[in-house]
């Protein structure tokens, strides 16, 4: 879907907060809304460039696939994971239940 960029600088702050998985206070939302709209309005200068037929650049230099031998290598051990996990029990990371009881 293509949308005229000139109409795009109004921000649905609740939708963005949801996409961002960020819990924000109402005061934060209010402030962010104004700042983001001001920033995006400035960025509308990009509209003035003719980009028809131009390929997008995803990398600063030409990246090619590099294949390595399929070899077993050391990874992080459960002991190492235990030092960084927020909750850890029986050599596993504790997470909240994400499936219902049958």
């Amino acid at each position: 879907m293509s949308i005229d960029i000139s109409n795009s600088a109004s921000v649905d702050i609740d939708h963005l907060a949801k996409l961002s998985r960020l819990q924000l206070a109402e005061s934060e939302k209010f402030k962010l809304q104004g700042q983001l709209e001001r920033i995006l309005n400035h960025f509308r200068a990009l509209e003035d460039v003719d980009v028809s037929g131009i390929e997008p650049t995803a990398h600063a230099c030409d990246v090619v696939n590099i294949w390595d031998e399929d070899e077993v290598a050391e990874g992080l051990t459960p002991d190492q994971l235990e030092t960084i996990a927020p909750a850890f029990r029986d050599r596993q990371i504790v997470v909240p239940k994400v499936v219902d009881d049958a």
């Binding site: 879907m1 293509s2 949308i3 005229d4 960029i5 795009s8 995006l40 960025f43 990009l46 460039v49 980009v51 131009i54 390929e55 997008p56 650049t57 995803a58």
Partner: peptide, 15 residues
């Protein structure tokens, strides 16, 4: 918004 903002920015990056 993806095409109008992100892809457009990537194209201007090419230029």
């Amino acid at each position: 918004y993806y095409d109008a903002w992100y892809v457009r920015a990537q194209k201007v990056r090419t230029l």
